[in-house]
């Protein structure tokens, strides 16, 4: 009688709760950059939301950090297949930032210092699903991880969580951002493995 054993190689990947298909766990925080790391002095930092009609609402660093902030713990999933579970952040919810912004736009383009962009549907930024974070693991967010502030939208692949964020443009039509224009998926759901166009 043949006995097939998996041996003692540890738990299968898919048995780890919270780990999407095709991902592996890491305890590091890998740094992925598509260009030089911008160093933004806080007195020159500004975050602007521009609506589809051209109305702008913006905050400087002092105004931004005076807004009600939340401490939150989320799992993050990079399209290059690492996942990090239980990461802790402090930031301002997009619900708070959008509170006094009048818009009927369904799509957004997130913009960063250095020119990076990524598109995220409006509904994926609201209802407690996204934050502009300025602390990670209790410390000020380091420049290599997107400091002074980055978007964190953890239910999508982490390229959507733009580092060095400086604004969100609200749009009536969806448009590709930096990686999406180069072949990555327009939406990027890690649970559906939406890595590349056509996935």
């Amino acid at each position: 009688m043949a006995i097939i054993s998996r041996g003692f190689g540890g738990r299968r990947r898919e048995s780890v709760p919270g780990l999407p298909p095709g991902q592996y766990l890491t305890h590091d925080f890998p740094v992925l950059s598509a260009g030089p790391t911008p160093r933004i002095p806080l007195d020159r930092w500004r975050f602007t939301i521009q609506t589809e009609t051209g109305e702008s609402t913006s905050w400087n660093w002092d105004e931004f950090t005076a807004l009600p902030a939340e401490d939150y713990t989320v799992d993050i999933h990079c399209v290059t297949k690492w996942s990090k579970l239980g990461t802790t952040w402090r930031g301002v919810s997009l619900d708070t930032l959008m509170e006094n912004v009048e818009s009927a736009a369904d799509y957004t383009m997130v913009h960063s210092f250095g020119g990076y962009t990524t598109n995220v549907p409006m509904e994926d930024l609201l209802d407690g699903k996204a934050w502009i974070a300025y602390k990670f693991d209790g410390e000020d967010l380091a420049p290599e991880h997107g400091g002074p502030a980055r978007l964190v939208v953890p239910h999508l692949y982490f390229w959507k969580s733009a580092k060095w964020v400086n604004g969100i443009q609200l749009m009536n039509e969806d448009e590709p951002g930096f990686w999406e224009a180069a072949g990555y998926h327009m939406y990027g759901d890690p649970w559906l493995e939406q890595r590349y166009q056509g996935d």
Binding site: L32, A34, G35, P36, V79, G115, W159, W179, G183
Partner: peptide, 18 residues
């Protein structure tokens, strides 16, 4: 060249645009 695991990004040495 920036060799991020997501993809290779080649920038102009003069203006740093992609």
């Amino acid at each position: 060249l920036w060799g991020a695991p997501t993809g290779r990004v080649a920038r102009c040495p003069h203006c740093s645009d992609v």
